[in-house]
Every structure is written in C-alpha cells, then in structure tokens.
Amino acid sequence: MTGSTEARARWMSALAQAEPAAVEAAWARLEPEPVYRLLRAAETGLVMVRGRAGGTGAPFNLGEMTVTRCSVTLDDGRVGHAYVPGRDGRHAERAAVLDAILQDEAAREALEPLIIEPLVAARRARQQETRARVAGTRVEFFTMVRGEE
C-alpha cells in the first residue's frame, strides 16, 4: 500500500467505525456544506465474513454482516466511496463525501486533525478502556515453595 492509500485507508476506516452521531457532528462543522452528486445511492447489503481453519489455515465463510455503501462525486470530479458497518444510509453517504473531500491535499491538511483524529482517538480510548477492565481478570499465579530447595 503506498503512503497515500495508507492514509486514505486510515481515514475511511475511522469514518466507517465512528458512531454515526460523531460523523454527523463532523459533517455539521463543514463550511460551506459540500455539494456533491450521487454515483451510487446508499445501499445496504451483505459482506461475507471469512475465518481461517485453525485461525491460520484455509479460509472459510463464517457468516455475513450488514454493510452499507455509497459512492459520490464532487464537482471537480473527485470520487468518494464509503463502506460502513450496519444499515445507516446517511452515515455511508456522509462518509463517502468526506472521503472525496479528504483526497485533496489542502483539504486533508485542514480537516484531518479536525475530523479524523478525534474519531481515531475516541476509538483508541474505547479499546484502552476494554484493556484496562479486562486486565484485572488475568490470573496472577503465585508460586509456592515446597520442601527444601
């Protein structure tokens, strides 16, 4: 993955995994409200989730999950895509427009810290919370000294 696709994958992931309310709030802060055309209206479908036999072996189909996708185009021809978990069409549409906008270097410099970084930080915080709660359930074995040694 090149540097630019890595960055794009990162912001797309942040937008997909954010709470829809957070994406809506980010959208509301955009001045002026973006103008765009739908290439493919938000559509909910299924993505087959795959596992691997033994965790590391040949892939198999575990079961499907709902995913909603949307594709838009801005006036200057930039195309934005979004694939978000669940069935929220608006979340997908907002994310697709943001994806299109962020592909412009200048817009990205301005908006990434404002919109994407808080989403990434929130997610990281949630994971840290889980880690902290779970850590207390790790068994701390203590060794017993037996006999003469």
């Binding site: 087959m48 965790g55 499907e64 995913v67 880690r131």
Partner: peptide
C-alpha cells in the same frame, strides 16, 4: 431477512491474532 439483501463482497479472512482480548 438475509435473503432481501444483495451480496456486496467478502471480507479478508479474520486475523484472530490481532484481537483486543476480553477472555
């Protein structure tokens, strides 16, 4: 309900190595 939704694609195989472990 599944039968009313189109298949959009497949995921990469899950990497259960990279897990935020709860148990």
């Amino acid at each position: 309900y599944r039968t009313t939704l189109p298949r959009l694609g497949t995921s990469l195989p899950l990497d259960t190595d990279r897990m935020v472990v709860e148990r």
